[in-house]
Amino acid sequence: MQFPPELRYSQEHEWVRVEGDEAVIGLTDFAQHSLGDVVYIEYRSQPGDHVAVGDVVAEVESVKAVSEVFSPVGGELLDTNEDLDGAEELVNQDPYGGGWLLRIRLSDPAQVDALMDASTYQAFVAEQDS
């Protein structure tokens, strides 16, 4: 299982990559693995919406499970990953790359600091899995 060191992680198993004042968000390798093959993604928020930490911004479905995606940071939703429409498997195959879900303009970059780093998250996952 992959835990790229340059990313930050939430307890809800989302990852965040900071690019300037923007954040790219997706599901972690652990999350996609426990969910199984992703078959459908429904965005609850549209580009232009303002989202707060903890808002449900999307639902990701596999055949036998539904997982809500909680925004790990707040700000203006800039973009959702439309390439996933019909290619949902990218969330499984490339969770930290082509499988990204949202791009947000950070309203408070300090929110990122509150998230876990890779090694803390790895330990968090190991505890959950046991």
Binding site: Y40, E61, S62, K64, A65, V66
Partner: peptide
């Protein structure tokens, strides 16, 4: 599309 249904959602 069983994710719509009670046994999952």
């Amino acid at each position: 599309l069983a994710t719509r249904e009670q046994h999952i959602r």
